[in-house]
């Protein structure tokens, strides 16, 4: 069972690299937000899988819950910060 969790967490890590591509290459700032939001959503199960691998799940559940809160607040704050008219994307 541990093998399955190990392979799953490695797969999630690989997916985060793909999401990192969108966060880096995203043409506009908002695409980078989408990439950051995707990475945030991927870390929650990754944390739990690591907790399972370390056989100490209770601590990691709280960490994952706190991270879900922080990810939400980060996205809301950056979306509110980027509410300005110009400069978000390269005007045609």
């Amino acid at each position: 069972m541990n093998q399955i969790f190990l392979y799953a967490s490695i797969f999630i890590g690989f997916l985060m690299l793909l999401a990192m591509f969108r966060a880096i290459a995203g043409p506009s700032i908002l695409d980078r937000l989408v990439g950051a939001n995707a990475i945030g959503s991927l870390t929650i199960p990754l944390l739990l899988l690591i907790g399972l691998l370390f056989h100490n799940v209770e601590m990691f559940i709280d960490i994952a819950l706190a991270y879900a809160l922080l990810n939400f607040i980060a996205v809301i704050a950056s979306a509110k910060y980027f509410k300005k008219k110009k400069g978000l994307f390269d005007e045609p």
């Binding site: 908002l30 937000l33 989408v34 939001n37 959503s41 929650i44 819950l65 879900a68 809160l69 990810n71 939400f72 996205v75 809301i76 979306a79 509110k80 980027f82 509410k83 300005k84 008219k85 110009k86 978000l88 994307f89």
Partner: peptide
């Protein structure tokens, strides 16, 4: 919790995009 907050976050980003 994520089910409640994920739509709000997506809406906020979308609103920033439309507003820009």
């Amino acid at each position: 919790f994520v089910y409640i907050t994920s739509p709000i976050a997506s809406h906020a980003i979308m609103d920033a995009g439309v507003r820009a």
